[in-house]
Amino acid sequence: MKPIIKAENLVFTYPGDEEQKPVKALDGVSFEIPEGSFTAILGHNGSGKSTLAKLLCLINLPDRGRLWIDGREMTADDVTEAEILAARREVGMVFQNPDNQIVATIVEEDVAFGCENLGLPPAEIRRRVDEALADVGMTEFARNPSYKLSGGQKQHVAIAGTIAMRRRCVIFDESTAMLDPVGRREVMDIIEKLNHEEGITVLIITHHMNEAARADRILVMNGGRIIADGSPSAVFGEPERMWEAGLDVPQTTEFAYKLRELGIKVPLDLFDPADCAEAVAKAVLEKRGGARREAGS
């Protein structure tokens, strides 16, 4: 499928001042994001993930390298303001702090904010807002003030705002980090639904390995570079590399990895506890049986 985002050798440096040295946040990052895919970006704090997200949303432009959004090169010399605005319509972002991205007090007015910026006719906005609120299950809160909602519900409102704009790609920059487990699960479910049912391209930046395991593909960043790129099975299949990058693997993978050191052959990529347990049980019973047979013979 054709890529909605294509990056080639992106470099970005935060300019320093008298006290702070300039920080090279991205140091040659290349990848393609096919339309309709679900990618997770992992990396410790300061590894360059959020900088990358800001480039992809065109909040910042790279110092060097080339970036294409929907086939149009944003780093070309002849790119116009209008083209950048048009690209921004396609790629949206949901941020970490739900409080700092809601503009209007009333839920439905906030959901409408993006569409109003696009200059759509009022009736069309009304239709899209109602649909988007229904999609995220927040219809009953449409006329409520947002400050009375829980963190998870506020993130639902923010997501509805991007759905209403009919964006083709949404980046979630640690959008679950400030939520409790229930809120986190609900937001992840919505994200998955967006991807599976609406075909929206999704990128999530997260510190939670079990959330990353739900993606089709994981990019691991360290020191401004991509150090691993592959399916969750492939990436978590090398736990040493993750630990070196200051990251974790899901506990199921860690368990399987440590069992392998004991000579119990279990796959590393069974992220569901039931699947993992089944494989471990089979291997353990086999090994125990084998040991008994040996002892018996």
């Binding site: 899901p250 506990q251 199921t252 506890p273 039931a274 347990a277 089944e278 471990v280 049980a281």
Partner: peptide, 12 residues
């Protein structure tokens, strides 16, 4: 998560 694995192991 590991406790859930343990629970499933007991079932198995």
């Amino acid at each position: 998560l590991i406790t859930r694995v343990a629970a499933a192991l007991i079932e198995n």
